[in-house]
């Protein structure tokens, strides 16, 4: 699924989307950047409340194409600039993490997969 499609179907606000055609393979929800570094799968959008430059840096490292900021949090100018520089898309929702995660899960079709078995996280930090 493309980022643009996912964003539209989940009703996300596009704060800055340099390329809507990038493929999204999943989602990862976390406010702990060390966890994101350790576990965020390649190609997943990051759902977080962390509205700062470090979030962009971590996304670049793990290959997450987009950040979904929850609670309609403000995007600081430095974060916007960093995201533009690194080619990371910034999306936003007024909803909370749980709600938007569920919506993303439904659209991405992960519900069926994860109702069965969980994925134990390997080598936690």
């Amino acid at each position: 699924m493309t980022l643009a499609e996912l964003s539209a179907r989940c009703g996300l606000e596009a704060v800055a989307v340099p390329d809507g055609t990038v493929a999204v393979s999943g989602a990862y929800t976390s406010d702990l950047l060390s966890d994101v570094m350790a576990h965020c799968p390649d190609g997943a959008v990051l759902v977080t409340v962390q509205n700062h430059t470090n979030t962009v840096a971590v996304c670049t490292l793990v290959g997450a194409p987009a950040i979904v900021l929850v609670h309609g949090r403000e995007v600081p100018e430095e974060m916007r600039a960093a995201a533009a520089r690194e080619g990371v898309a910034l999306l936003r929702t007024r909803d909370d993490q749980f709600t938007v995660s569920c919506r993303l899960g439904a659209v991405l079709g992960v519900g069926a997969r994860c109702a069965g078995d969980g994925e134990p996280a390997a080598g936690t930090v």
Binding site: Y28, C102, G105, G111, C114, G118, E119
Partner: peptide, 15 residues
């Protein structure tokens, strides 16, 4: 405690 990621847990709890 759950072995799932938070994203998967959200989806699982909702289900």
């Amino acid at each position: 405690t759950s072995g799932r990621s938070k994203f998967d847990a959200c989806v699982g709890v909702a289900a």
